[in-house]
Design a protein around this nucleic acid. Sequence first.
DNA 1: CATTCGTCAAGAGCGGTGCTCTCGTTTCTT
DNA 2: AAGAAACGAGAGCACCGCTCTTGACGAATG
Lengths: 230, 230
Amino acid sequence: MTASRTARERVRAELIREITDIARRQLATDGAGGLSLRAVAREMGMVSSAIYRYFPSRDDLLTTLIIDGYNAIGEAVERAEAACPRDDFAGRWLTACHALRDWAVAHPHEYALLYGSPVPGYHAPQDTIAARVRDVTVLGGIISDAWRAGAMRAPAIEPPAELEGEAAGVREHVPGVPDGVVWQAVAAWTALYGWLSFEVFGQFNGTIEDRRAAFDHSMRLTAATMGLAQ
Amino acid sequence: MTASRTARERVRAELIREITDIARRQLATDGAGGLSLRAVAREMGMVSSAIYRYFPSRDDLLTTLIIDGYNAIGEAVERAEAACPRDDFAGRWLTACHALRDWAVAHPHEYALLYGSPVPGYHAPQDTIAARVRDVTVLGGIISDAWRAGAMRAPAIEPPAELEGEAAGVREHVPGVPDGVVWQAVAAWTALYGWLSFEVFGQFNGTIEDRRAAFDHSMRLTAATMGLAQ
DNA sequence: CATTCGTCAAGAGCGGTGCTCTCGTTTCTT
DNA sequence: AAGAAACGAGAGCACCGCTCTTGACGAATG
């Protein structure tokens, strides 16, 4: 409350920021497995135990990096999509896809931390879920808008009875559409991230070279499947 | 060549097999990050340095586990698909998809090792590529067969000029089809693995519960997109 | 002003890891 | 039988996450 307390808090916040910055740099170069608290401390001129004043464990440091990553990816796609004409649904979809891919290709290790194999003993705390849905909210919003504008084709097949009610958890991100469209959106979502994971994790190495063009075409195929109008 | 030499070689082969078995069990329970050469040695009653007589490094042990994994997944999908009527293309597609998913759900850590974030010492040797394409050969074969039987719809959009020749690396797995169909197959392939990765890596936790049914519907959507006939 | 009290960096240490090297012993080859 | 190759054991190196204790500093309180 007082100025002195705020001063101490400020230097603490600054140190936390510095730790996460260095950690993020190490993550970018060495990957999540290579992130070492001792190396971070060394780079800061501190002793390793001092880090534990600011992060109770390595997993907690990873958690803040994960949240930051989700926010970065969410902000990238939000910003890119917001610049599109609202009624160009295919354009909004493609722009969002490319924003996502650009970020993923530029930050492969961070992408792997977010969407790759979960780290061994790591359980995502609740704090992450708010940040992790920003991209799917954007993607779902495009499909929702397109459907409600009548600028989208009805899905080729309807979901079976056993999926009754299963769409509830997803619908909040793609509101105002029938179940079939929700599942269509899920399919598009998984196709998008399936490509990104394949590309970032190197599954295309040696087989597909112009990955940006191939990705663009693949996402156009997905848009065409949904009948997204321009 | 002689019997005595074969005897020594045989015990060596047996030890290698035992090491990989224990390692695979540890991989299944603790994940790739938790796989420890020392723990394997401990469980075998050996000292850790003795392991290095059989595997020059931890990465080499992981590599054989990766190859085994690709072969296991390839064999599972090959066997399941081979049991389908040859002219039921949608059935073959769905069967292959479910075989893949069943294996992935049953072996999440192994799946993560194959299709998740690459491990730190991550350069996959050439030995893996022969095993890693068995599943895509099956999937590509279905699409190729369907196309040549006239039991498949032409893709909604054609690939752009810049993708000319880019399909070459993929076409060997889906022979005898035009470029547009190759890219359609790639899209289906990425959609399939995108779903599996999302499910295995826990992205559906809390939102989609009946994942088998949802997966089934999603793969039926993909089949419908390709117009696979039954 | 002096004294408590909380925060902090530092250091030592524990148990774990991958990996290397050496040293006898065993086993195969010649 | 002699030499060569393979082998298991052990010690050791450098690293890791994490814990605990110690001493210094600064802010709030008497």
